[in-house]
Design a protein around this nucleic acid. Sequence first.
DNA 1: CCTCCACTGGAAACCTAGGCTC
DNA 2: GAGCCTAGGTTTCCAGTGGAGG
Length: 396
Amino acid sequence: MSDSVDAIFNKTKKGKALFQNRNALSTEFVPDHLPFRESQTENVAQVLSPALLGSKPSNLLLYGKTGTGKTAVATFVVHKLRTQDDTKQIVTAYVNCRLAGTEYLTLARIAEALPMDKDKRIPLTGLSLSEVSSRIFDTISKHAIHLILVLDEIDYLVESTDETLYKFTRSGEDTAPGFLTIVGISNDLRFKERLGARVLSSLGEEEIIFPPYTMEELRSILEERTKIAFRAGVIPQSTINLCAALAASEHGDARRAIDMLRVAGDVAERDGRQSVDEDSMRKASEKIERDAVEVALHSLPLQNKMIIIAASKFPGGTNTGELYLTYVNIAKKSSVEVLTQRRVSGIIAELDTLGLLEAAIVSKGRKGRTKRIKLLVDDDTLRRVIGDDAELLELH
DNA sequence: CCTCCACTGGAAACCTAGGCTC
DNA sequence: GAGCCTAGGTTTCCAGTGGAGG
């Protein structure tokens, strides 16, 4: 027992020769220079600069696909802004609206960044959205805060209505003498269509587009990053090239490329290798794919999991009606409340956007219209994840 | 060219949990 | 502690709809 533990630790110590600064590859790491994003960085800085003189900057929207540097640029500039702030009134907050979950929780996260009075704290549930908003505005006003609010994946805040954003963009009087400026980040280019004209005109005062990185740019970014993260000579050029090529095929996603680099380093370490070779990189690419699916599956609500299980009974694909019948059987057997078909149809659409299954509307003429549904999770992964779910275990 | 299936997806009503007020 | 209020999830209701078969 203790021998095997020693073995693991020894291996890790030996493998440590590969990494020099593993943190440089973590998602939170913000480099002191963002290559190929100079113009966007300057743009954002330009727009936000009035805050240093105590006046309210324009709201700002950043657009671009995932991993094109939007979040990095925003956090980079906002961080600089805070360190240069002589007015001591600037407060910055970063909230990812998708990770926050609901509109309410997004507001609660914003409040966390502010010095809320004891009686103004935000409980987990129970308040109305307008009550939460006005508590936030009151705090900004009372402490004369100049809030720079970065809302990542802002499209998730507008799923039903843009009411909250409207309030935030028109909060001028409620927050005086403080103010609040929104830096919205979206990777959905159609997001603007869901905004009413009144919100769009003030939120979209300034817009900055982030194009995907080319393979050459990715390679250069990776080279720069490996110099910080790995010891010299442990990562050959061919591995970096492969990593850049893999990421470029995924619409130039730099975050993914850097993740792969980190995981490849871990893989090589665990295998006790002396360098991060192409084989480790390929393994890393697969592992990231698998892990993403597992995390998504794991965090799914019970009902959604049952629909996935029902879909797994049809390896060749199925349609809504058939899937629903199977789902009903499974739900009854495990004595879980049975949802209506309308709701199940909605959940299928949600699972589709999560990429766990593929649902395409097809018309079969006389036989009506339905969704052709195909599960994208393989059996092994499914069993591994659903396996820990005690309630679902009963029915296997 | 028309029908009519098997749904889709919008809208509104309903339900539940939990904080607030008095 | 009763009664009120709201967010978020769900149900109910229903007006569409693309295209194979007639």
